[in-house]
Design a protein around this nucleic acid. Structure first.
Lengths: 204, 204
DNA sequence: TTGGACACTAAACACTGTTTAGTATATTTG
DNA sequence: CAAATATACTAAACAGTGTTTAGTGTCCAA
């Protein structure tokens, strides 16, 4: 009988409805101004209803985070096109930074905000970032194999590159860097200079 | 007359009392489990009293953050002793990482948590990080002048080094890095390898 | 048609930061 | 010294949060 299937479909539709409202609220207004009650308002259900589809707020945020990583994968797929590994690395680095610039709120949720990480009780079970990280590590291995970078270990190389980019981005997002004041150039320029010089320096 | 002075002293004492309770709560339990009401409880005053000494929670967190930066400065003073600029840089990098390991909650407030940054309405007026940053930039200039590193611009160099270290630290603090799983070594080892290789690579 | 599963919600609970109105004490003034 | 004023403090309320409970009405299966 198709009733069970329909019910399942309706359940999935409702989760979609909730997560869509959450994403929209998140992207437009950010983490601080998003709440379960406002989402309930937006989809015209009571707050309690959300708890029939999500165990708690963290679980909902985990789903929003997953959508963020899907968007990042798509962004990479479009922007990273070069064959040469080092050129590919440069493309990937800039694609990462551009993703942040276009989706700062999502970036925040994906890499900085704590809440979605509480959804998976086992810390080792966080899978959302794996695709992007694996792609980077594989690329760094290619760069090393072709002696295009000064790194020797692909794991170290990938967390170095990622750490560097994430460091600049999160200092920017949290207003801890004021390159504008320090160098006379504007903030974005200062960050771009640092990224360009970093890419030059790691080059073999 | 000494009454005005005594009142001023009492006002300062009360602020100390509040900020001390806040720091203790913060260091022991972290941002999430700290609240104005609990601080009031701890110092045996009503919550409203805190608002006679601090405009809002952000302003109090700003003071706690300042104490964090004082602690970092003291940590640097003790740990950074070498004369040679490049060796000094290595010491400074490890001192920074060790400060994070010994004070993860404070690090969080100093470099990641948003709230204290709302206390200063003008974004350009945040002075807390200046001392530490200036010391790093000056050190990078020395390294560049003595041709000890591959950087050419001290501003770019300092935000690169800082960005890199902060990137690794904040990915670790927010559980976005799982080097243990990826490399077989434990988490701390993976981070240490990346830092060592980074320091090696930027060396001229 | 009856019985039970299901979808949903109003209201409550336990928190949060913050403000208001009022009290009791300390200080200044007449 | 007494009256007036300024100060220090707080109880209670307000507006918001995430989450749970108890109950209602609808839909489906027997």
């Amino acid at each position: 009988m198709g009733i069970a299937e329909r019910k399942e479909r309706e359940k999935a539709d409702m989760r979609r409805k909730i997560v869509d409202a959450a994403i929209q609220m998140f992207v437009e207004e950010g983490y601080d101004k998003m709440s379960i009650r406002k989402i309930a308002d937006k989809i015209e259900y009571s707050p309690a209803t959300i708890y029939l589809y999500y165990k708690d707020k963290d679980e909902l945020l985990y789903d929003v985070q997953s959508e963020g990583f899907d968007a990042l994968a798509e962004h990479f797929r479009k922007a990273v096109t070069e064959k040469d590994p080092y050129r590919r690395l440069k493309q990937m680095a800039w694609a990462y930074v551009n993703f942040y610039r276009e989706n700062p709120q999502l970036y925040d949720l994906m890499f900085i905000i704590n809440d979605p990480m509480n959804a998976e009780e086992d810390e080792e079970d966080w899978k959302n970032g794996d695709n992007a990280y694996d792609a980077l590590q594989q690329l760094m291995q290619e760069c090393i194999d072709n002696k295009l970078v000064r790194f020797k270990n692909a794991v170290v190389a990938s967390i170095s590159v990622w750490g560097f980019l994430h460091g600049l981005i999160s200092l920017d997002l949290r207003c801890r860097i004021k390159v504008c004041k320090l160098s006379g150039s504007d903030l974005e320029e200062g960050m771009e200079d640092a990224i360009n010089e970093y890419l030059r320096i790691i080059k073999a």
